[in-house]
């Protein structure tokens, strides 16, 4: 239960950090809050010759309104900071509401936004939120900066679009304006556990009460979080009061290719739980769009 030996690096800025990652190659790993990485090292599920600590990278921390339509959250910002942030609550309600579902407060005091996204657990909340809101992820490598849309970022269980020597520096969350509703629902055996299945819903109504924007995210139901894009497309333009929440849940979880089956639940069970979570989140999001 002790991690294998490693060499510790504490670079002072992001350029130095990615330089180290490039130079040390696949023997090196970035460490942020350590809330996913250290358990893996302790259980010897992983070991690295070098850990590159991001703790001194102040440029990776912060929550800032950028223009009218975007909130930038630094990759190194802790989940606890997100939870305490009035800006996050007001401008990115879905992210704020997802945060208390992450582990326990003693985990959130260290765990970071970038760590949650880069770790890319299939049952994690933040990847599903980023996907649902069409967030854009900022990455830095020795080759320069690039922006990765959330839809392209998650490539598989614990795997992402990031190269070995690439860091997430921040996430740009679009601010949805107008008559919007946001909800996240998940089911876990105990509070703080990873979800057996969960769902996110974000929607917006136009002046006539019809849906003009709609996103449904699912997590815990495949190797990565996914969007129920067919169901979303069918709902656009409709009156959400006429939609049947249970039917939306069934439709959103139909035809999922690789729902996990393990001792916490079989694939058909998880799928039914997922459908119920979509229905619950849908109802709450519609209520919020109608009544604020």
């Amino acid at each position: 239960m002790k991690p294998a030996p490693f060499t510790y690096h504490a670079p002072v800025d992001a350029d130095e950090a990615v330089g180290l990652l490039a130079e040390l190659g696949d023997e090196a790993k970035a460490i942020a809050g350590g809330q996913s990485l250290v358990p893996m090292l302790a259980l010897r599920l992983a070991s690295f010759g070098h850990l590159v600590d991001l703790r001194r990278l102040d440029e990776l921390r912060g929550i800032e309104r950028r223009g009218d339509d975007t909130v930038w959250i630094g990759a190194g910002t802790t989940q606890a900071t997100v939870q305490r942030s009035d800006e996050a609550r007001a401008a990115v309600p879905l992210l704020a509401r997802a945060t208390p579902f992450i582990g326990h407060f003693q985990i959130r005091s260290r765990g970071t936004v970038g760590g949650s996204l880069a770790h890319a657990d299939s049952a994690a909340e933040y990847p599903a939120v980023a996907l649902t809101l069409d967030a854009e992820l900022e990455a830095l490598s020795p080759r320069g900066r690039r922006t990765i849309p959330a839809a392209r970022f998650l490539t598989g269980m614990w795997s992402t679009e990031l190269a070995d020597d690439e860091l997430l520096t921040g996430v740009n969350f679009p601010v949805w304006k107008g008559r919007c509703g946001f909800a996240i629902e998940e089911f876990a055996r105990r509070s703080g556990d990873f979800a057996i299945a969960g769902a996110t819903v974000a929607l917006r109504m136009d002046g006539d009460g019809h849906l003009d924007r709609c996103a449904i995210g699912l997590f815990g139901l495949g190797p990565t979080a996914v969007r129920a894009r067919d169901t979303e497309a069918a709902l656009l333009g409709s009156d959400p009061l006429e939609a049947d929440a249970e039917e939306i849940g069934r439709s959103a979880t139909e035809g999922l290719g690789s729902v996990p089956s393990d001792l916490h639940g079989s694939a058909p069970y998880r799928t039914r739980v997922g459908a119920a979570m979509v229905a619950r989140a849908w109802r709450r999001a519609v209520q919020e769009a109608l009544h604020g």
């Binding site: 510790y8 504490a10 460490i31 350590g34 809330q35 250290v38 358990p39 302790a42 600590d53 703790r55 606890a80 407060f105 003693q106 985990i107 005091s109 260290r110």
Partner: peptide, 19 residues
């Protein structure tokens, strides 16, 4: 193993002393 690190409760088993 919970301790306060700069005032916040953390798992001391998931922090390296160097951090």
């Amino acid at each position: 193993c919970t301790v306060l690190l700069d005032g916040e409760a953390v798992r001391a088993c998931l922090v390296f002393a160097v951090q």
